[in-house]
Computed example of a mutant assay.
Amino acid sequence: MSLYPYSYAILRAVPRVERGEFVNVGVIIYCQQLDFLRAAAAIDPDRIRALDHGADIATIERAVDAVLAACEQSTGSNRENSGLVTRFGMLTAPRSTVVQPSPVHVGLTSDPQATLEQLIDRLVRAPR
Rank of each mutant, 00 (worst) to 15 (best):
M1S: 12
S2P: 13
L3C: 02
L3V: 00
Y4K: 08
P5T: 14
Y6T: 07
S7I: 04
Y8Q: 08
A9I: 04
I10R: 09
R12T: 00
R12W: 04
A13G: 06
A13M: 14
V14L: 01
P15M: 07
P15E: 00
P15D: 05
R16G: 07
E18F: 11
E21F: 11
V23R: 15
V25M: 06
G26A: 03
I29E: 03
Y30M: 03
Y30K: 05
C31W: 03
C31Q: 11
Q33A: 15
Q33R: 14
L34D: 11
F36V: 11
L37H: 14
R38H: 06
R38C: 06
A40C: 00
A41R: 12
A42H: 15
A42K: 08
D44K: 02
P45G: 10
R49W: 02
A50H: 13
L51I: 10
D52Q: 11
D52M: 10
D52F: 12
H53I: 13
G54T: 09
D56T: 00
D56L: 08
I60F: 13
I60E: 13
E61Y: 02
R62L: 13
R62E: 15
A63M: 12
D65A: 15
D65L: 00
D65V: 00
A66Q: 14
A66W: 04
A66I: 01
A66C: 04
A69Y: 13
A70F: 08
C71Y: 04
Q73Y: 04
Q73T: 13
Q73A: 15
S74E: 12
T75H: 01
T75G: 09
G76D: 12
N78M: 05
R79N: 02
R79M: 12
R79P: 05
N81T: 12
N81D: 09
S82D: 14
S82N: 15
R87F: 10
F88W: 02
G89L: 04
M90Q: 14
L91R: 03
T92Q: 03
A93L: 03
A93E: 11
A93W: 05
S96R: 11
V98C: 04
V99E: 04
Q100D: 06
Q100P: 01
P101W: 02
S102L: 09
S102V: 10
P103Y: 03
P103E: 13
V104E: 07
V104K: 03
V104F: 01
H105N: 12
V106F: 02
T109G: 15
S110H: 08
S110K: 11
D111G: 12
D111A: 12
P112L: 05
Q113A: 15
A114R: 14
A114V: 07
L116E: 07
L119Q: 02
L119T: 02
L119Y: 06
L119K: 09
I120G: 07
I120D: 02
I120Y: 00
D121H: 03
D121W: 03
R122V: 06
L123C: 05
L123Q: 09
V124P: 09
A126W: 05
R128C: 01
